[in-house]
């Protein structure tokens, strides 16, 4: 008994591969058709373009813009701006914010978009990026003039600059 592909085995192999390929195409087309529903949140650009429904529960996501968090000292009310560095979305919320909430942090807010263009949030969730670092490293970066809130923006800036440099050298 050897393992060579006899005609019978080859036929079985092709039937199976064909079956899996067809299933993959079906799943792929379904996901493609549903892509806007699979996205967890609308980004401010999409909201500014009018893609999000008004006065229905939606989720919006982006970064908390630096220097925009305004807390009411009397209550739990808080207002801040969520940005994707292209468009901005004003969010008003009353409640307890997650520990990771801060300026420059990614957030997902659940709530209703008002016709005036701001979002009344029922829930605020913090996103976390894929980077972890010890507090000492964060402190060193801070002493070098980077606030922890800036890391992501700084990383994006550096990446942009490097890309521009690369384009400059290749041209």
């Amino acid at each position: 008994m050897t393992l060579s592909l006899t005609p019978k085995r080859k036929q079985r192999l092709f039937v199976i591969l064909g079956l899996v390929a067809l299933a993959a195409i079906a799943v792929g087309l379904t996901l493609y058709a549903l892509r806007s529903n699979i996205n967890l949140f609308f980004s401010p650009v999409q909201i500014a373009a009018g893609d999000a429904p008004i006065e229905r529960q939606i989720r919006a996501g982006g970064m908390v813009k630096e220097g925009t968090v305004a807390r009411d000292p009397e209550s739990l009310d808080v207002a801040f701006v969520v940005t994707d560095y292209v468009d901005d979305l004003e969010v008003r919320y009353s409640g307890i914010l997650p520990d990771l909430f801060r300026e420059g942090q990614g957030v997902v807010v659940v709530g209703e978009l008002q016709s005036e263009g701001w979002l009344r949030a029922d829930q605020v969730l913090a996103r976390h990026d894929e980077n972890y670092m010890p507090p000492e490293v964060a402190q060193a970066l801070e002493e070098a003039g980077y606030a922890p809130e800036d890391y992501q923006a700084k990383a994006a800036e550096v990446a942009e600059r490097m890309e521009a440099q690369q384009q400059g050298t290749s041209q």
Partner: peptide, 22 residues
């Protein structure tokens, strides 16, 4: 897609989102 879950940190090849001691 846009997700709440962040992209992968741990990769054997490519950029790793954490220092060696982690």
């Amino acid at each position: 897609w846009y997700t709440l879950h962040q992209p992968a940190t741990f990769t054997v090849t490519g950029r790793v989102g954490m220092p060696m001691e982690m």
